[in-house]
Amino acid sequence: MSGVLVFGELTDGHLSGTTAELIALGKQLGESVAVALFGGNMAGAADEAAAYGADRVHLVEDPLLVDGQKDAIIAAFDSLCREVSPDIVLIGKTPLGLDVGPRLAFRLHAGLAQDCVSLEMRDGKLVATRSVYGGNALATVGFPEQGPRIAIVRGKVYEPLAPDASQTAEIVKFEPKLDSSVIKAKTVQVVKRESQGVRLDDADVVVSGGRGLGGPDPFAQLQELASLLKGAVGASRAACDAGWLDHSYQVGLTGKTVTPNLYIAVGISGASQHMAGCSGAKNIVAINKDENANIFKEARYGVVGDWKGVLSSFIETVRELTKS
């Protein structure tokens, strides 16, 4: 038993925001927080981890980790966990983390709590609250005595600590000495869709459309509104599945999690699956013709009506108000 181990990830060469959030969470749960970083040239990210509060950084280095193959990262993290026997392992709900957590749990015969929205110690035991049934219910779960307690944590639930560049962390190198046979599936290409304007993930204002818009064309109006408010456009899964917008716009349980100050939902009923991606918004504004729509249970301001009649004058008034 020795503290909390965070699965570290990078964004554009820097420690990811999710990793910084997990360090802050780890400080609440354990006496010491270590972060694992994979690959080479991690000195900068290790300093960032220290600034965000990590006590120790494991630099996991192996020739097979250089090109970031997931199977190699999982094998290396498995090896590190066996070496340091962490009490708690924290992993972000990211495309990589969602693969790492379950595979680690099966390899270590450990307990895993998926999509945690809260973690706390109760009588010295880790208890996780997690979203289930598409967000319709919350399950509170405890872990087995054996093995590390692995939690995949939803993003943007915990705030990172304020970074302090004067803080240092113990740097420990770890060489898992991987055999090339660990790589069974291989990523050969990554195709990125460049988003234009404000990134949906970081936007302070999000204007989202759903099934109620009836087709792809009304999204031009939502884009106009988003531009006026210096925000980004999002969509419900139904709108993306219908092909009206690319899935990179999808907000929800299996899409993006957004936490803007203002979330304007147009023609979105507010199924739990969608709310899981936007319930962290500070203010939700809903326009929907169904007064019983679930979105109004979560909204701060609501309009019951046909968006077609409401949206144009709303956008024009916003234009006038934001001109000055």
């Binding site: 609501g302 009649g309 409401v310 949206l311 004058s313 709303f314 024009e316 008034t317």
Partner: peptide, 15 residues
């Protein structure tokens, strides 16, 4: 809930 004299007015009131 925001409402106006008609739908267009509701949009204006919301803003």
């Amino acid at each position: 809930f925001i409402s106006g004299e008609n739908e267009a007015d509701t949009g204006r009131q919301l803003a």
